[in-house]
Design a protein around this nucleic acid. Structure first.
Lengths: 139, 139
DNA sequence: CTACACCTGTGTCTTGGACACAGGTCAAGC
DNA sequence: GCTTGACCTGTGTCCAAGACACAGGTGTAG
């Protein structure tokens, strides 16, 4: 299979497949005639797995570890559980950060609605930004 | 001021200051004697502004534009308003994505609690991951 | 004068692909 | 057979926003 054929039914892009190939998750063989990378059914299977894992928040590096573990014939499940727990913590952190940022942004937009535009002065670049953090910033 | 002194009262790191310097947002002068970068009060002022803007979700590139506009003596306020509106949209998107991911992760962890560890088979790398997306994946 | 803690600039690394680019492939038309 | 044009390919580079490593400089306590 060529990369475009491999990509077809899976929901992903050629660039993504090339990236996974580059980091060694997929192992196509190089065609003698045209240099194209030829993917087999095992690659197709691995790609499907990779995409599933990515959708669950595993990093590409995580997936590499999992695949390596599984390649030894051992259960990757305990590893998978541990990693996901860690990734969930991180996602929780990102979530809280994003939530807080979103609130700050909305709050700023609301607050700015009644404020005029001003030219910068020697000690004020944009009074909207500088005024906002002065009023609601506690750190 | 040396970089560590500049950083001291602001809540940031030397690496961050060096980065802003690298991209041209800060303009210290190079000391003749030891090659150290020497920051002035204007840099301190700019840094404070940059950190405020970053906390509101502006990208470093955005801030560069804003600073450039303000350097011409013109109001940066309209630009600031437009950019923040756009960044809010993006943040909203990230927020939704993170929210959905968090739910998937928690759901997976919960679902896996009753499932055993299994060794990989020829067509199954990790039944937890592959089983999860099969059961709850709609795309 | 020396030991040692801390500070410095420069250069590289990170994530997960996206994008640009020059060239190759393939089917349609002449 | 040959050519045109659409699409496809691999390789290389680029992105954000710093973090980290490293070799060397500085300053101070003894």
């Amino acid at each position: 299979m060529k990369v475009s054929e491999l990509v077809k039914e899976m929901k992903t892009t050629p660039d993504t497949v090339r990236y996974y190939t580059r980091v060694g998750l997929l192992s196509p063989v190089k065609s003698e005639t045209n240099g194209y990378k030829h993917y087999g059914v095992d690659d197709q299977h691995r790609l499907r797995f990779i995409l599933s894992a990515r959708k669950l928040g595993f990093s590409v590096n995580d997936i590499d570890q999992i695949l390596t573990e599984a390649a030894k014939g051992k259960t990757a499940c305990p590893l998978v559980r541990v990693i996901l727990e860690k990734r969930l913590e991180e996602t929780e952190e990102v979530f809280q950060q994003t939530l807080a940022l979103r609130i700050r942004m909305k709050s700023a937009i609301g607050e700015w609605q009644t404020k005029p535009n001003k030219a910068p002065t020697g000690h004020m670049i944009c009074h909207l930004i500088e005024g906002f953090n002065a009023s609601s910033g506690k750190d």
